[in-house]
Design a protein around this nucleic acid. Sequence first.
DNA 1: GAAGTTGTGTACCGAGCGGTACTGATCCGA
DNA 2: TCGGATCAGTACCGCTCGGTACACAACTTC
Lengths: 210, 210
Amino acid sequence: MPVRGRPRGFDVDEALERALEVFWRQGYEGASMTDLTAAMGINKPSLYAAFGSKEELFRKAVARYAEQDMGYARHAIAQTTTYEVVATLLRENVLAVTRPDRPAGCLSIQGGTACSSENGGVAEFLAASRLAGERALADRFARAVSESDLPADANPAALARFVMSVTEGQAIHAAAGVSREELRQTAEIALAGFAAVSGARRPATADNAA
Amino acid sequence: MPVRGRPRGFDVDEALERALEVFWRQGYEGASMTDLTAAMGINKPSLYAAFGSKEELFRKAVARYAEQDMGYARHAIAQTTTYEVVATLLRENVLAVTRPDRPAGCLSIQGGTACSSENGGVAEFLAASRLAGERALADRFARAVSESDLPADANPAALARFVMSVTEGQAIHAAAGVSREELRQTAEIALAGFAAVSGARRPATADNAA
DNA sequence: GAAGTTGTGTACCGAGCGGTACTGATCCGA
DNA sequence: TCGGATCAGTACCGCTCGGTACACAACTTC
């Protein structure tokens, strides 16, 4: 059964994409409906009909972001060794937060770490989604312990927290204008430090370039 | 020569302190004049007479924050060895971002990493002040190289960027509700990693507790 | 006490906020 | 060709935003 009534005059995915970038650059509260509709090329009633409200639009933007901009994290976790997991995560993160065709930094931080009391839910939502990613990494490290890829006395949660802290700091640096090459150096330091501290075996093939 | 005219009915420092906490919790754009004046216990005209504008108030709050909440950073840089500098910085940072009598996290991040276009200067101002701190740390590391406390081939700027990235990530974690003890574990991992990678000598007295 | 100076409180400004009612326009199936 | 359904666009809602005019209160100096 095809659509009934007048068809939409714009592409919902494309409009969401534009909104995503506005939220990314200006944060949730810093992005006004006027900014959003201007970037999306539609009028307010169309936005509300298609997305419900500003907050729903934001959550859909974050979901889209997680799917297409955070794919590297799932790819990283799927690596076969702990070292490769972390190496992939840190290096891909550098690329992700400095993509020339995207705003600098990371939406889940730029979106808003602090909000007015009425929008407090937005900051909490972003924090929860970041911590969910961290938990996935901690689970991956726990598996590595059970596979003897990490020592039995390793602390998976703390190691994951360390790696995520670095990526978040890198995202903030990127948003401040720090270059990809500079962040790459930092990522290699973090990776080498992780390898030295975690007890994860570093592969014989030296693929790093600090 | 004493004051002329009616004396002020409130303490400017105390009012600035209250404003500081509101900005810290809600960010620059998330803190409305109503929120601020309510917390400061004064009316808007008094605020404008004493502080000029919302943005000036914010900058004064950040200056106050740098002076009294970031003092640990100056203390850290003044340590005699690179290891002690980094150990102090990372450990004191954990305490600073989880002080029970303060909002969680760090004002220079919570204040706003992304803003609307008209308030873009606020985010830039915060980014610049963070990078200034990083440069001071890089200078300290450069001195350590010249003192042979770090290897001649060490990259002071990259090492400083790594340490600051960790502290920023820790601040974001704290704002998300992560506990002091959890952050302490992460700080020890970062410290041990830094020691292993930088070539900084670790003191014989083992004062760490990962 | 009067004059001059400065802070306080109320009441208000224009502008922009997020969100919506309503009129037409545009499609479908019959 | 007409009725039903859906979307687009204008024009507007109440509200809050940051910021201020103005009358009054409180203080010092003469």
